[in-house]
Simulated assay, not measured.
Amino acid sequence: MSKFSGIKVLVVEDESFVALMIEDMLEDLGCQIVASLARLKEACDIASTAELDVAVLDINLGGERSFPVAHILQERGVPFMFSTGYGKNGVPAELSDAPVLSKPFSGKELEETLALTLGGPQRR
């Protein structure tokens, strides 16, 4: 049984192949995918109402930024990480405490960043 078993995750990613890869990696860790969404409005709706333990947010969603989702999660006290090719430089100051997982990444890097996001020790 994984330390991530049963963790409820929201995935916000607009590239379907990348979303499927992230979902597979998370499921391999024992996580439960609550929703996997590609559009900002739907992501905001789910982030506002769903029972979540953590979220993985791509920054660029078809030209829109996912920062409104991050703000909703922040207000609800739900931890989140950014999954992006922009690196830390793409994150605004008010969200700079969120871990950033730089694309492309491995399953091990996702696991480490997930542990960091949830406040647990990273395994190296």
Rank of each mutant, 00 (worst) to 15 (best):
M1Q: 04
S2P: 15
K3S: 08
F4R: 02
S5I: 07
G6R: 08
K8R: 15
K8H: 10
K8C: 06
V9I: 14
V9G: 11
V12C: 06
E13A: 11
D14R: 05
E15Q: 10
F17E: 04
F17V: 05
V18G: 00
V18S: 08
A19E: 10
I22T: 13
E23V: 09
E23G: 01
L26S: 01
L29Y: 05
L29P: 10
C31N: 02
C31L: 02
Q32C: 00
Q32E: 13
V34K: 07
V34I: 15
A35T: 02
S36H: 05
S36N: 09
A38Y: 02
A38H: 11
R39D: 11
L40Q: 03
L40Y: 04
L40D: 01
K41W: 00
K41P: 01
A43L: 07
A43M: 00
A43I: 11
D45P: 04
S48R: 14
T49E: 13
A50H: 00
A50C: 06
E51H: 06
E51L: 04
E51S: 14
E51A: 10
L52A: 10
D53P: 12
V54L: 09
A55G: 04
L57A: 02
L57S: 01
L57D: 02
I59N: 05
N60Q: 07
N60H: 07
L61M: 02
L61Q: 00
G62R: 08
G62Y: 08
G62H: 09
G63L: 07
G63W: 11
G63Y: 09
G63P: 05
E64H: 11
E64A: 15
R65V: 13
S66D: 01
F67G: 04
F67D: 03
F67L: 13
P68H: 04
P68S: 02
V69P: 09
H71V: 05
H71E: 14
I72R: 01
E75H: 06
E75G: 14
R76Y: 09
R76F: 10
R76G: 09
R76D: 08
G77K: 03
V78S: 08
P79T: 09
P79K: 07
P79R: 05
M81L: 15
S83W: 01
T84R: 01
G85D: 07
Y86D: 12
Y86K: 12
G87V: 12
K88W: 02
N89M: 11
N89L: 12
G90W: 04
V91Y: 06
V91Q: 05
P92K: 08
P92H: 12
P92F: 10
L95S: 07
D97E: 07
D97T: 15
A98E: 00
A98F: 02
V100L: 13
L101H: 08
L101G: 08
S102E: 14
S102D: 12
K103C: 07
P104W: 13
S106Y: 05
G107M: 14
G107T: 11
K108H: 10
E109R: 14
E109V: 11
E111I: 03
E112H: 11
T113I: 13
T113G: 06
L114N: 09
A115R: 13
L116K: 14
L116P: 01
T117K: 02
L118A: 09
G119T: 06
G120D: 03
P121L: 13
P121T: 14
P121S: 08
Q122R: 14
Q122C: 12
R123V: 15
